[in-house]
């Protein structure tokens, strides 16, 4: 029983990382209709920047977090402006290929700027063990769960109450009609890329805290993609929950079946899922009515 509890709790923590990255996927898909194959790489770049800051100013977690957040904003804005905006109006296939190219570029840049070895990210916090009942968890694990909850709440309010959030849903529903209302799709896209970069970056920093920074960190994108499919590619909140489900399922499969099953658990879950609800657990079914 204790073993089960341990697996579930650490599964939720990993799942929270997947969930944050997955929300980033969904946000871009919702606003632009694209799957961004560079999501994991964006997450990795921000984690590396956090590591660089931590190496320069040691022992100040707030500075590291603040610097990483600022870097992720710049990264998101820059990618949208420099790489994606020129692709506006091009076929979706070509644009998705561009995100794959971007992923490769970001991976090489990581190796060029930093190095090929794993490093521990030490910000002077996050490693303390906290006990919940008999389960010991690291404070960073609790923090990432809290962050996911916060992100879910924030995005819920954003889509429901803010002008930009509603406009993002409008652009997702009908981009041309949104234009006719004076909504600038380019601006909405920029917001989506930026927000997506920020939550992916936060996930990257947590992942670095719990594990390492390493040039393999972009795999978090591959692990999180099933979470987005599970939750619904166009459902930002659903993707966040999807991450938790995948994280827990992975841990249980590894703990009770075989460690080697872990890597493919996510994909098995989504294959089963897609047979039952092709648009994801929380995805919006097209409303068709004339």
């Amino acid at each position: 029983m204790q073993y089960l509890l341990d697996q579930v709790i650490s599964g939720i923590a990993v799942g929270a990382i997947y969930g944050l990255v997955a929300m980033g996927f969904a946000l871009i898909y919702k606003a632009t209709g694209l799957v961004n194959f560079a999501q994991g790489e964006m997450s990795m770049i921000t984690a590396y920047i956090a590591w660089s800051i931590a190496g320069t100013v040691s022992g100040n977690p707030w500075l590291v977090v603040g610097g990483a957040l600022a870097a992720s904003v710049v990264l998101g804005l820059a990618i949208e402006r420099v790489v994606m905006r020129p692709m506006l109006g091009e076929p979706v296939f070509a644009t998705v290929m561009v995100t794959i190219g971007l992923a490769v570029v970001l991976r090489s840049a990581t190796l060029l700027i930093w190095d090929a070895y794993p490093h521990a990210l030490d910000i002077g916090a996050g490693r303390e063990i906290v006990h919940i009942g008999d389960t010991g968890v690291r404070s960073a694990q609790l923090a990432v769960m809290a962050t996911l909850l916060l992100a879910l709440g924030a995005f819920w309010a954003f889509f429901r109450y803010s002008r930009i959030g509603k406009a993002m849903r409008a652009v997702a529903a009908d981009e041309r009609a949104a234009k006719l209302m004076g909504i600038s799709a380019a601006r909405i896209h920029a917001v989506a890329w930026t927000a997506s970069s920020v939550i992916a970056g936060i996930a990257g920093v947590f992942s670095a805290l719990l594990y390492d920074v390493s040039p393999n960190m972009f795999h978090v994108g591959l692990k999180s993609f099933p979470a987005t499919i599970l939750g619904g590619l166009d459902s930002v909140l659903g993707s966040g929950f999807g991450g938790v489900i995948i994280g827990v399922a992975e841990n249980l499969a590894a703990g009770y079946l075989a460690p080697s099953v872990k890597e493919i658990t996510g994909f098995i879950v989504i294959i089963a899922m897609l047979m039952i609800r092709p648009f994801g657990l929380f995805g919006e079914r097209e409303i068709e009515r004339v």
């Binding site: 002008r163 509603k166 406009a167 849903r169 409008a170 529903a173 009908d174 041309r176 009609a177 949104a178 006719l180 209302m181 909504i183 919006e284 409303i287 009515r289």
Partner: peptide, 15 residues
């Protein structure tokens, strides 16, 4: 061309 998943109020907001 309404924003189909949005409520009436939200459609008006977008206008």
């Amino acid at each position: 061309r309404l924003f189909a998943p949005l409520s009436v109020d939200e459609n008006l907001d977008m206008g």
